[in-house]
Simulated assay, not measured.
Amino acid sequence: MVAGWFGGDGDDFRLIGTRCARCASVFFPREDTHCRNPGCAGGELREIPLSRHGRVWSYTDSRYRPPSPYVTDVELPWEPYALIAVELESERMVVLGQAVPGVTVADLAVGMEVEVVPGVLGEDAETTWTTWYWRPKEVRA
């Protein structure tokens, strides 16, 4: 888990961003030092929960094992997964993330409604690596 990027459980699970108090720009991943909007002189950055829902903007599948800091068990065979770019409902910004396990690119379509849900990348005796997934509201037939 990357501290401060997401939190909550069930229907309260959210990605966490920041909003500039001066220009209202929203950032994810969160920004804690300065406003990234080049047209803004800067203002206080406030933590905000981001929309739970959005629409598929684009998608692809991952057919290779990504490099660190991605966590993967090199002892297990690589399993491809769908990667989705989602335009958030309220913020109108695009956030990238994996589809829930079992959803493939054949199940996705641009414009499809999805929601963010908690997920587990992997775990061992000492650590559980958590993340977020995008889950389609309806899987294509």
Rank of each mutant, 00 (worst) to 15 (best):
V2H: 14
G4C: 06
F6R: 14
G7V: 08
G8E: 10
G10W: 06
G10H: 06
G10I: 07
D11G: 09
D11V: 15
F13A: 12
I16N: 03
R22N: 13
C23I: 10
T33R: 12
T33Y: 12
T33A: 12
P38W: 14
P38I: 14
G39Y: 15
C40F: 12
A41S: 13
R46Q: 14
R46T: 15
I48G: 04
R52K: 07
H53G: 12
Y59E: 10
D61C: 08
S62F: 10
R63V: 08
R65I: 11
P67H: 04
P69H: 05
V71R: 02
V74T: 00
E75Y: 06
W78L: 02
W78I: 05
E79R: 07
Y81D: 06
V86K: 00
L88H: 06
L88M: 11
E91H: 11
E91S: 09
M93Y: 10
M93E: 11
V94D: 10
V95C: 08
L96K: 11
L96P: 06
Q98W: 07
V100H: 08
V100D: 09
V100T: 15
V103A: 01
T104L: 02
V105S: 04
V105K: 02
L108H: 01
V110W: 00
P118N: 11
G119W: 06
G119P: 14
V120G: 02
L121E: 12
E123F: 12
D124V: 03
E126D: 13
T130H: 05
R135N: 04
